[in-house]
Computed example of a mutant assay.
Amino acid sequence: MNGDIRTLLSRHLPDYRVRSVRPLGEGLDNMVYEVNDELLVRRNKATTPDENRQEVARLAALRELSPLPVPEVVFADDESGVIAYHKLPGEPLNRHPAADLRHGAADLRRLAEPLGEFLTALHGASTARMREVAPLDVYPAPTLLRDAELDYRDVESHVPEKQRPLVERFFEEPPPDEPRSLRFCHNDLGAEHVLVDAEAATITGIIDWTDAAITDPSHDFARIYRDLGPEFFEATLSHYDFPLDDADRARVLFYARCALIEDLAYGLSTGPRHYADAALAHLAWTFA
C-alpha cells in the first residue's frame, strides 16, 4: 500500500521528494498515511469519485467557516478516494485525557470555550449553502436503537457484569423524538478528531470530515459527551449560542450511547482495540 501512496504522490506532486511514508491510523472508513512528517494522505475505503470531490469542496467551504483550523487540501485523486492535506499540529485529544494533560482537568475545561464557539459557527452555517457540499443524513432513532442492540448482543460478555444492567435499561426505554430541524454538522466529533497542544491546552485543529452532513446537531454533542464526560459537555454547551432543550438533550444521550456501543463492537471485531478500551472506560458516565 505504501507503494501506491508513493505512486500517487509522484503523479500529483512530481517535484516533491518523498523521504518516508508510514501508516498513521485506520478507522471504520479511512486509512491515513503520514508523508515526511508534513503531509497526511487519507484513503477512503468506500467513497465514490463524486463523494471525494464533494469532500474537497466541503473542506474549502469550512476553511472560510470554521474558527478552528481544518485540513488544507494539497491534492485529491478522486478515482482512488485519496485526499492529501498539510499536517496540522497537535495530537488527538483521546491521547491526552484530562488526567494526562500537564496541568490537569482545568486545562481540559479550557478547551470547552473554543469548541463551543466552533460548534456555534458550524451549526449556524446556511443549510442551503452547505447542502451543496454535504449530504443529508437522517437515520431514524428506532433503527439506531435496534442496530445498537444487535451490536451489543455480540459483545455483551466483554462488559463488566455490574454494568450490564445500565445498558439493558437503555434498550427498554423508548427512543427519543426526531429532531425538529437539521443543521450542518461534523457528525463524528469524537476526541480522536480534535487535535490539541497538550502543553498549552489549546485546540489546534478539527480533522476527519468524511462523515460531515446535514443532520441533527445533537450528534456533534453526543460524542463529546461519550468521550469527555457530562461535565465537559456542559462546559462546551455554556459557550454554544443555540438553545438545547430537554428533547435535544435526550437525543444527545441517546446518540452517545449508540455511538459507544458501535465503538465497542468495532474495537472487539475488526477495528483497533483502543476503540473498545475507550468505550468500556466511558460506559459508566454514558449510561448512568
Rank of each mutant, 00 (worst) to 15 (best):
N2V: 15
D4Y: 01
I5N: 01
T7P: 01
L8T: 00
S10T: 11
S10V: 00
R11D: 05
R11T: 11
R11S: 07
L13Y: 01
Y16D: 05
R17L: 12
R17M: 04
S20E: 14
V21D: 02
G27A: 07
D29F: 09
D29Y: 10
N30S: 12
N30G: 06
R42V: 03
N44G: 11
K45F: 14
A46Y: 06
T47F: 06
T47V: 14
T48V: 10
T48P: 09
R53S: 12
Q54W: 07
E55R: 14
E55I: 09
E55A: 03
E55T: 05
R58H: 11
L62K: 10
E64H: 14
L65T: 11
L65W: 10
P69G: 01
P71Y: 00
E72F: 00
S80A: 15
G81M: 09
G81P: 02
G81S: 04
I83Y: 04
Y85F: 15
Y85W: 10
H86L: 13
H86N: 14
K87A: 12
K87C: 00
L88H: 06
P89I: 08
H96V: 12
H96T: 12
P97K: 08
R102K: 07
H103S: 05
G104Y: 09
G104M: 04
A105F: 10
A106V: 15
A106D: 14
L108G: 03
L108S: 07
L111E: 04
A112T: 11
E113K: 15
G116M: 11
G116H: 07
L119I: 06
T120K: 08
T120I: 08
L122G: 08
L122Q: 06
A125V: 03
A128H: 09
M130Q: 06
M130P: 08
E132W: 01
P135D: 06
L136Q: 13
Y139M: 08
Y139R: 13
R146H: 13
E149H: 15
L150T: 14
L150Y: 09
D154H: 14
V155D: 05
V155W: 12
S157E: 15
S157L: 08
V159M: 11
R164H: 11
P165Q: 13
V167M: 07
V167I: 15
E168T: 13
E173N: 05
P175W: 07
P176E: 08
P176D: 04
P179Q: 04
P179E: 10
S181I: 02
R183F: 01
H186V: 09
H186P: 02
N187C: 07
D188T: 03
A191K: 04
H193F: 04
V194S: 06
L195P: 02
V196E: 06
A200L: 14
T210V: 13
T210Q: 06
T215N: 13
T215W: 07
D216A: 05
S218M: 10
H219W: 14
H219Y: 12
A222G: 05
A222F: 10
Y225Q: 13
D227E: 09
L228G: 02
L228T: 02
L244D: 00
D248I: 05
D248R: 02
R249I: 15
A250K: 13
R251V: 07
R251N: 06
V252T: 12
F254D: 04
R257C: 05
R257W: 06
L260Q: 05
E262N: 12
S269D: 14
G271T: 09
G271H: 07
R273N: 02
H282P: 00
L283D: 03
W285P: 03
F287N: 03
